[in-house]
Amino acid sequence: STLVRVAKTASTLGIAIEGGANTRQPLPRIVTIQRGGSAHNCGKLKVGQVILEINGISMRGREHRDAARLIAEAFKTKERDYVDFLVTELNVSL
C-alpha cells in the first residue's frame, strides 16, 4: 500500500468512487479522476486504486455512503489543507 497526500489545491477533490461493505467491491475503489480537481493536480492517485484509509481512518466494513461521507468531510474540513489517502493497487477482498 501507498500513502498519498492530496493537497486541497482546487475547490473539488475530483474523484468518483465505487464500492463499500456488502457490495461486490468491498472497499471503495477510484473509478474516475476529474481533470482540474485536487486529486488530478496531485498526480499520484490513479484510477483502479483501492482506498484503505482516509487520514488514518479505515474504510474496512464501511458502507458506500458512509465511506463517501467520510472522504467528503476530510476534504471539506478546514483543520488541514490536505487529505491523506492510504491506497493499494491490489483489489483487496475481505
Binding site: 473539488t12 477533490l13 475530483g14 474523484i15 468518483a16 468512487i17 465505487e18 464500492g19 463499500g20 456488502n22 457490495t23 461486490r24 467491491q25 468491498p26 473509478v31 474516475t32 476529474q34 458506500h64 455512503r65 463517501a68 472522504i71 467528503a72 476534504f75 477482498s93
Partner: peptide, 16 residues
C-alpha cells in the same frame, strides 16, 4: 468466495 461475492449487489458510484 467469488460466487458469494458475485451474489452481492453492485455498488453505487459517488463523485467527490
Amino acid at each position: 468466495v467469488r460466487e458469494k461475492r458475485l451474489a452481492l449487489p453492485p455498488s453505487e458510484i459517488t463523485m467527490l
